[in-house]
């Protein structure tokens, strides 16, 4: 195959890169590849990486690109199926039984004996346990979505191991069993993103069912285009300085290194302050946007002149 004649996969990935870019998400090629594969193979994606590199953001961008609704499920300890999958509308059920009480006499009219009455009642068995009285929670919503959906299961590492096991059926077959109704299967399999900050090791069973994407901190070229897309008003020179500064900050031994979201915040801060270029005073007074621990700020304080000087060379 010649270089000019691109393979369909390459074409798809190039489109994906451009599409994500239009939704304001500057992706690396690995990211575009995983979204493409996830769609083509209809597999869920497990996204890992340090906090603030845009794991959640990726799902938002994908939903915009595919023009499908984003359904988000935030995980936390103690999350159970009543909150993640479905719940019965108890209030409505009670209300209806009260209202229909009077109807009961009419229904039962003409029946003789207990057995016949029960048989008659059986005809209305499922009245109160059908989809009318079902309150769909995120997972069920995603399965029921008419035109497909993007399902984001955020911070799966925060949930219990039981919940992880419960997800397996959904992730493998895009279906879920509800005891009172039966199996619900997705009309169109949703595109599923799971994110994890690695606070605990995710089970092998879950990993096996997913594509695995690790998003590292972006290199300086990628980070620059991210800033360009997110804070377009910022001058190019300052942008280069700012990215160089943050990149060298990541090389230091810090409790929490600044992520992309912090770089964006900082860019916005500098824009707000009409800063022409980085200088020691400016950096010192705005460092709390980048660093979130007092220890880190104190640690970096001594290095600021050297870092600023180095960064300004890039401008």
């Amino acid at each position: 195959m010649s270089a000019a004649q691109q393979s369909p996969a390459r074409q798809g990935i190039t489109d994906m890169l451009a599409g994500l870019g239009n939704s304001g998400y500057i992706a690396s090629e690995a990211i575009a590849t995983v979204v493409y594969l996830a769609q083509a193979l209809s597999k869920p994606v497990l996204v890992e990486g340090p906090p603030g590199v845009g794991k959640t953001e990726l799902a938002y961008a994908a939903s915009q690109l595919l023009e499908k609704p984003l359904i988000r499920l935030q995980c936390y300890e103690g999350l159970d199926e009543a909150k993640a999958l479905y719940e019965w509308k108890y209030g409505k059920q009670l209300l209806y039984t009260q209202v229909l009480k009077e109807k009961l006499g009419d229904l039962m009219a003409g029946t003789q004996g207990l057995r016949e009455s029960i048989d008659r009642l059986h005809e209305f068995d499922d009245t109160f346990f059908n989809e009318e009285f079902l309150e769909p929670r995120p997972l069920l919503k995603a399965l029921w979505a008419e035109n497909g959906a993007v399902l984001l299961i955020d911070e799966i590492d925060k949930s219990d191991q039981e919940f992880e096991a419960f997800l397996l059926e959904l992730l493998q077959d895009y279906q879920i069993s509800i005891p009172e109704i039966g199996t619900v299967k997705a009309k169109i399999p949703p595109l599923v993103f799971l994110t994890s900050n690695n606070t605990r090791e995710i089970g092998d069973a879950l990993k096996r069912r997913c594509l695995h994407l690790y998003i590292p901190f972006p290199d300086s070229k990628l980070e620059q285009s991210i800033i360009e897309s997110r804070v377009p008003e910022l001058e190019q020179r300052l942008r280069q300085q700012l990215v160089a500064f943050v990149q060298s900050l990541r090389g230091l031994d810090l409790k929490k290194v600044p992520a992309v979201s912090e770089t964006i915040d900082w860019a916005r801060t500098l824009l707000l302050l009409h800063a022409p270029e980085l200088d020691n005073q400016l950096v010192r007074s705005t460092l709390n946007v980048l660093l979130k621990f007092q220890d880190d700020i104190e640690h970096v304080d001594a290095e600021i002149p050297a870092l600023t000087r180095a960064a300004n060379k890039h401008g």
Binding site: M1, S7, T33, A40, E48, K207, L211
Partner: peptide, 30 residues
């Protein structure tokens, strides 16, 4: 099996593409 599926999609033509795809399907931790 997944890897074979992914391989069918991307083919052997482009090395970086192949690497990303296989890495996402086969390697599941850092």
């Amino acid at each position: 099996i997944d890897a074979a599926g992914a391989l069918e999609m991307v083919g052997f033509d482009e090395r970086p593409l192949l690497k990303h795809a296989l890495s996402q399907v086969l390697a599941k931790s850092v």
